[in-house]
Design a protein around this nucleic acid. Structure first.
Lengths: 342, 342
DNA sequence: GGCAGCTTTGACAACGATGTCAAGGAGTGT
DNA sequence: ACACTCCTTGACATCGTTGTCAAAGCTGCC
C-alpha cells in the first residue's frame, strides 16, 4: 500500500514556499487587487511548483452565501434520451459559468426522489432542476425559504410554489389524436405510462378530449395504462391487436411505449396497416418504415429554459414563480397518416 | 426580495435548541455510541423540528481522508447513449453506497478534459471515471500520487499507469470486416471517427488487418476519416456512393457514423444493396430495414466494471493497475449479410 | 467515606479557505 | 520634519463539522 501518499498541497503550503502569508496566496488565487508584482510572482511560481489546486468545498464554507458552484439535476433516468437531453442542456449553461452538475436517477420512485434531493442538499447544491416522481414536494419548503432556486421540469410541483417548465400535455395529446381522427380513424387505442405520473394522466385527458371532439366514445377495451417499459407496451398492444376487434390506430403516450407498440406491429407484420402517433420524439423515428409520426417535446429546449431560470435566480433576480409552457409540435412522418382499412 | 431568507440551520442551532453541546449533536447524527437516551431523544426532536441537514462538505473537511462521498465522471457527451450508459452504470454502483456522481462532457476537446478534471479535483471528488480526449494525461500524476482512484474507460491513459476498461477495438473491427468479406465483399469502405481518438485508429488498424487477411488491398478512395457527426458521415459516404466506383459494403467505426451511412443509403434507395456493419450498437438498430448488423460493445457493462474497480480502490484494496478488456460481440441482423451485386 | 473505573459530556483545536481589520511602509504636500 | 493618505501585508476569527482529550458524573467496592 503506497496509499499513505502525500497529501494534496494546501494554501498554507503554497504560502510557506512563497514566503508569504496564507491570505496573500488567497488574494492571488482569487485575483484580488493589492498584491505587489514580486510577491504575486513568487506565489504563482509556488502554485505551479506544488501543482496547487484550491479546495472549493473549503472556500465555499467561508464565502458569502456558501455558494459551491455546483447545481443538481434530479432526473428520471440519466440514461434515457429525454433525461440526458435535459442534463446536457443544463450542463451547457452551467459550463459557461464554471458551474458543475450533479445528477441522479429517480426512476419513478418517490423515496429515491427524496433521498436524492436530501443528498444534494447536504452537498450544498446551489440550485436544483427536478423532474419529480413523488406526488408531493412540500418537503422542499425549507430549500425554497432558504433561497435555493428550484425549477421543476416536465411535471409540476405539488405543495410548493416554484418555477416550472412544462409541456402542454393535454393539447399535445389531443393534437395527436385529432390527427388520427382526421385521417378517418375512430378506433384509436391509448397506450399510457404509469398513472402515478401526472403527465401521463394529462395525456390521457387530451386523448379523451380529442375523441369527444370527434364524437367518438372511448372504448375501454382499447385503453391500456401503467405501461412503463417497452416490453410492457409491446405485450399490451399485442393483446389489443390480437383481439377480435383490434383498433385501427394507436396513440402511444411516451417514447418507450411507442417503440413497444411498433415492435408489436412489426411482429405481426401490421406496421403499414395500423396507424401510430407517439408522444415524444425519439432518435431514428424518421428512419423506421413507416417513419413514425410524433408529437415532439424538445427536451433540450426545456432544459435550456429551466437552466436559464435557475441561473437568473442564482444571479439574484426575483419574480413571482411562473410556469413556462414549451410548445409541442406534430411531426408528420408517415405512421400517423395510414388510413383505416376500407 | 425575500431571498434575505433565513439561513439553513446548523449543528449549533440544533445543539442550542436541544440544550446540549455541538459535539453531542454530532455524535447523534453520526450514530456514535455513548449518548444517553434522554439527550439523544432531545437532539433528534430538535433535528426534526429544525429540519436540520448536515453539511457534508464541512464534515468532509474535518474527517480523516477528507472523503466527500462523491465521484466524478468525465465523459464524451452526457447525452449520447454510450456515455449515458456508462454514467448510469456508475450511478447504480454509487447509489448503493450513498455516493453521488458529478459528470461533465468533454466533446473531444483536450482543454475541456483538463478543465473538467481540474474542476472535479477542486471539488474533492473521491475518484474519477474518465473517457479521455487528450493525448496525454500526465497532468493527472498528482491525483494518482495522492491516492485518488482513477479508471479510464474506452480509451487508455497515456503517460499514466492506472486501471483501464477497454474494448479490443482492433479485433472487434476486424471481426466486422471479416464478416463482410466472408459474404463476398472486396470493396469495403471505411468510415472512421476523428483520428485524434485512439480507438478510432485501432479500429482502422483492425479494418486493414482483416482486409489483408483476405488478400484485399485497401482502396484509399474508399476510406474516410475524421467523421465525427452523423451529418459528416452521411455526406462523406454519399460522396463514395456517388463516385464512379462505389464500394459494395461499408464498415462504419462508430454508431453516429453508422447512422449517417444509413441515411446516405436511404437517400439513394441503396439500403438493400450495399452492406453495412457498424461498430457499436444503437437503439432501434434491429427495427430498421434492413436491421443493422453491428459489433456491440456493451457500455453499461464497461461502466459496471469500471465502477467496481473504482470503489474497490476506494475501499483500500490495492493492486498493480490493470487493463480490463470487455468482449465485443458481432450481432447479425441483416445489413451485414447483403451480398455484393453479381 | 474514599477511590478506582466506567460512561457521558463538552471545551477546544483543527480541516482549508476567506472576511475583517489594523499595522507597517512608502509617498505626498506643507 | 510633520501629518496625511494610500497601498501592501498579515494576524485573527470564522464558516460547519469532527477528532482529541480531559472533566464531570455515576457506579460499585473496600
Amino acid at each position: 500500500m503506497d496509499s499513505a501518499a502525500r497529501a494534496r498541497p494546501t494554501l498554507r503550503d503554497v504560502a510557506q514556499l512563497a514566503g508569504v502569508s496564507p491570505k496573500t496566496v488567497s488574494r492571488v488565487v482569487n485575483g484580488e487587487p493589492g498584491v505587489s508584482p514580486s510577491k504575486a510572482g513568487a506565489v504563482e511560481r509556488a502554485i505551479r511548483q506544488l501543482e496547487y489546486r484550491p479546495n472549493i468545498t473549503a472556500s465555499s464554507l467561508r464565502r458569502a452565501g456558501g455558494r459551491t458552484a455546483a447545481v443538481a439535476a434530479v432526473l428520471e433516468d440519466v440514461s434515457n434520451p429525454f433525461s440526458s437531453a435535459l442534463y446536457r442542456a443544463l450542463e451547457d449553461v452551467a459550463h459557461a459559468r464554471d458551474v458543475m452538475v450533479f445528477a441522479g436517477s429517480v426512476e419513478e420512485d418517490p423515496a429515491r426522489e427524496r433521498a436524492l434531493v436530501r443528498a444534494f442538499a447536504m452537498r450544498q447544491a446551489d440550485a436544483m432542476l427536478i423532474v419529480p416522481a413523488s406526488d408531493n414536494q412540500a418537503y422542499l419548503t425549507r430549500e425554497v425559504t432558504t433561497g435555493t432556486p428550484l425549477v421543476f421540469v416536465d411535471r409540476p410541483p405539488v405543495g410548493l410554489h416554484t418555477d416550472a417548465v412544462l409541456v402542454d400535455n393535454e393539447s399535445g395529446a389531443a393534437d395527436a389524436v385529432r390527427h388520427l381522427a382526421a385521417h378517418g380513424h375512430r378506433d384509436i387505442a391509448f397506450l399510457g405510462d404509469l398513472h402515478t405520473i401526472a403527465t401521463a394522466r394529462r395525456r390521457f385527458q387530451g386523448y379523451k378530449e380529442a375523441l369527444s371532439d370527434h364524437g367518438i366514445r372511448p372504448d375501454p377495451a382499447h385503453i391500456a395504462h401503467d405501461l412503463h417499459t417497452t416490453e410492457a407496451a409491446e405485450a399490451a398492444f399485442g393483446r389489443l391487436l390480437d383481439s377480435a376487434t383490434p383498433p385501427t390506430a394507436c396513440f402511444s403516450a411516451q417514447n418507450l411505449i411507442t417503440i413497444g407498440a411498433i415492435r408489436a406491429l412489426r411482429a405481426r407484420g401490421l406496421q403499414h396497416r395500423v396507424a401510430v402517433v407517439g408522444f415524444d420524439d425519439f432518435p431514428l423515428a424518421d428512419l423506421l418504415e413507416p417513419a413514425v409520426t410524433v408529437v415532439s417535446q424538445d427536451p433540450y429546449r426545456m432544459g435550456r429554459v429551466a437552466a436559464d431560470i435557475l441561473f437568473r435566480r442564482l444571479d439574484g433576480e426575483d419574480w413571482e414563480p411562473t410556469t413556462h409552457l414549451v410548445e409541442t409540435r406534430l411531426i408528420v412522418r408517415g405512421s400517423g397518416e395510414l388510413p383505416p382499412p376500407t
